[in-house]
């Protein structure tokens, strides 16, 4: 399990996390933990020791305290571990030292400018290299705001690969455009140029890359920021075989998109 530090556009990122589990019974780990920053150069995962955190302590890391190459892809991971890591890794470490299920052990990760900050409760696990993404995006706001789609992707392998994301109107399946997203990156796509209206529900599809999609809004005067992720399609239902339903939802939409092309 990793905690992400982001950097997007002119915004700096922050990560605020504590060695304090959300519940008092799932994980009684109390050893001091080494904190490593992990980032990819495209060929290897690079690791750098950041310090030790003791049980009960809290740490905030801002992106402007990290070297530019650590955030070249827009995302740097923090990994708490009792082990020592080599400076170069072929794959991301697998062993989680902090874990809980009810709920997941999370941190606060977000973006900030001079006058505002926005955040979400974050943890990130590597996504499969071969996967897809389908998301409906109701976060576009109008008037004094700039709207972006932010797509986070982390895989165990360090490669930075470029994939395509297609943008549609979910009602009439009109194709609004195409954009690029990358693995092991925080990809930012400007949405205002595509001409979505306030009653459109944009549909974003990548058939070759999974990702965690966010709506990022920046007030033009900088006084407020907005960041929230959409749910995966499985969240449209509860109980039963949600994975099967998610597959069916994706298959149905991919099929319809194919028919309209």
């Amino acid at each position: 399990m990793f905690f992400p530090i982001l950097k997007a556009l002119h915004l700096q990122g922050f990560l605020d996390f504590g060695y304090l589990p959300a519940n008092s019974w799932e994980n009684l780990e109390s050893r001091p933990m080494n904190l490593y920053a992990l980032w990819t150069d495209g060929d290897s995962w690079r690791s750098e020791f950041q310090g030790v955190i003791n049980r009960g302590e809290n740490i905030r890391i801002n992106s402007n305290s990290l070297r530019p190459e650590m955030l070249a892809t827009g995302i740097c991971l923090i990994y708490p571990t009792a082990d020592e890591l080599m400076p170069k890794l072929d794959l991301l470490p697998k062993k989680p030292y902090w874990f809980s299920n009810v709920p997941e052990w999370r941190c606060t990760s977000g973006l900030f400018n001079e006058g505002a900050q926005t955040s979400y409760q974050a943890e990130i696990y590597p996504l499969p290299s071969k996967a897809s993404m389908l998301t409906f995006h109701p976060f576009i706001q109008f008037n004094e705001i700039d709207n972006y789609l932010l797509v986070l992707n982390i895989t165990s392998e360090p490669a930075i690969e470029t994939h395509q994301i297609e943008l549609f109107n979910s009602s009439n399946l009109e194709r609004y455009g195409l954009a690029e997203v990358r693995t092991n990156s925080a990809s930012v796509i400007e949405l205002d140029e595509f001409g979505f209206t306030s009653s459109d529900l944009p549909l974003f599809i990548s058939k070759t890359m999974a990702g965690i999609p966010f709506g990022l809004g920046i007030a033009k005067d900088g006084s407020m920021l907005s960041l929230e992720h959409t749910h995966p399609p499985a969240s449209l239902v509860l109980f039963g075989n949600r994975n099967q339903i998610q597959s069916k939802i994706k298959k149905g939409w991919f099929q319809r998109i194919g028919e309209f092309k």
Partner: peptide
């Protein structure tokens, strides 16, 4: 006095 909305799921 907010310029925009903050969203939460």
């Amino acid at each position: 006095n907010s310029a925009i909305r903050g969203y939460v799921h």
